[in-house]
Write a protein that binds this DNA or RNA. Structure first.
Lengths: 141, 141
DNA sequence: ATCGTTGCAAATGTTTTGCAAGCAT
DNA sequence: ATGCTTGCAAAACATTTGCAACGAT
């Protein structure tokens, strides 16, 4: 299922639900998933986990630095694996499609803007919300 | 209270609750307010409006283009008056403080990034979430 | 054996909706 | 008079929490 090592490093016991959730994020083609997404996928896979546990595990993983939480203006939080490398997100407001990007110039100006105003930016600080018109946009996934 | 004109233009009847809410946005020192904020301020001012009405009116104003809705990674939506002039937002994740900014270089690159990926950006597309460390940060308003 | 973890159900917080009464036109 | 609007209460979501049973060390 998954190496219990990473969990132990994070100070978390290597329990079934935690291994399943972490495993899912590492094997899923979908990089960004909500608690409900994770819960449903695990159910469909025949795994038996409670929704409350999924929420708890996701929060613990976020605090342990294994996952990053985003809100993406949708009313529900989504999580992605924290793989260290910096990137920002552009999100379609119609269908929820997420694409990652990295632009040095934007990085530079972003830090400038933040510094001027006394803000300290994070790894994932910057979001662009837009509409994906050219690509197939299923209007709500 | 407020000129009923703008409301009529938007195809909305000039009712008391709507005039009060619009008026509040135009007179409040706080540019960004949640439904709860608006509701409480109106109550404290002795005005009598239902919370459900506040939610409905805010949504109608958003659709009419009078207000802009943001989520700001906080679990609750906030609204601001749409005054036409473009700007982006940098938001403190600790206390919710919002500052507006406009950076031509970021604009340019943002459009580029969006174009490359087939996204169409809006007036308020770009957000930076950060921590305001240098300024007094009340840690939750 | 101990203490963290789980699942369920209940609680919480935000936003939406059904419906009868009320108001703008 | 008509039809949009309101307020309230209830419903709908997303998320969190209390608690007794369970599982990893």
């Amino acid at each position: 299922m998954r190496d219990p090592h990473d969990l132990k490093n994070a100070g978390l016991k290597a329990t079934l639900p935690r291994l399943k959730v972490l495993s899912l994020f590492e094997t899923s083609k979908q990089r960004h998933m909500s608690a409900e997404d994770v819960y449903k996928i695990l159910l469909n896979t025949g795994e038996d986990v409670g929704l409350a546990t999924v929420y708890r595990v996701l929060t613990q993983f976020e605090q342990a630095g294994l996952l990053v939480r985003h809100h993406f203006e949708s009313g529900k939080a989504v999580f992605e694996l924290n793989e260290g490398h910096h990137h920002d997100h552009i999100v379609c407001l119609q269908c929820g499609r997420v694409e990652e990007f990295c632009d040095d110039e934007i990085e530079k100006r972003q830090k400038l803007v933040a510094d001027e105003r006394g803000f300290k930016i994070h790894e994932h600080s910057l979001y662009i919300y837009a509409d994906c018109t050219k690509k197939p946009c299923p209007h709500k996934s």
